[in-house]
Amino acid sequence: MTDSKQAGIAKDILKTIDALEDLPSFPNAILKLNEKIADQGAGIGDFAAIIESDIALTAHILKLVNSPFYISLGGEVTSVRQALVRIGISEVQNVCMAFGAVNMFSKTSERVPLKSFWQHSLSCALLSKEIVAKLGFSSSDMELAFTAGLFHDVGIFLLDIHFSDLFQEVVKDAAKTHRSTLVVEDEKLGLNHAYIAARVFKRWNLSERLINIVENHHTPDRCPAGDKILCQAVHIADFIVASQGAFENSVHLMPDSSSEGAWHDLGLDVSDTPDLLRLAQLELERAEQFLGISQS
């Protein structure tokens, strides 16, 4: 493809993205909950009140906490307050974020299977958080890594929903030439899903740090210095989860490499691989449990 044709396609995509009026929005209760959790003075009663303002979210949390996955922690849970005590605020926050994300992008197609997409994203989010936690980062950085992991691939959804024909060409070409869709996106569209997501996040006024991480999750060494380590954590978590065959941009193609610089900077090496593999399996199962509940 000539550079001018590619530049033309990229320009058209950005023009359309910037003019979209029906962009999905994140559930208000979850945004409020995140704000409240960041507020040091708030307590369980405040969190419970926000969650209870959203009936669907309340029902989802109660259903999950009473599922076989958590039931071993104790008897039946009948209130959000009990749920917060039972599984902890951080876990409830993760559940809420996953619930919000899945409901926000509930439109699906043959090219982007909803369940495996979210299983991949949620496992990546959980694993990113674990990696960052092991490095001793603050809880707000851990939540940022989780959110970035959860949303890192939503550009794929946006491409598929709003540029269906072009994206179909990308997927077909990637399958035919055994290349990742990322490479083909860059080649055919002159931009990729990471950039599209970042562009939309700017319109949503999401934090610059989240935008930096999502935009660079395939190129972590380009991420601005302050967010580079978190971006590298998301990049490695994405690589590890994708290598389990859970989801690779809707084509069954395993990743073939990741940033050596990220391995180095995160202090990870081959001796950590068995633990990372165990953790990845655990997070995939946990994500499946979350999603199985949310879709039932």
Binding site: F239, I240, S243, H252, M254, S257, S258, S259, W263, T273
Partner: peptide, 18 residues
């Protein structure tokens, strides 16, 4: 020499093309 390659080797999972 590559951590990334070693991870995939130890993972031992391959797609249908590979």
């Amino acid at each position: 020499i590559s951590n990334s390659a070693l991870f995939l080797a130890m993972n031992g999972k391959y797609d249908s093309f590979t």
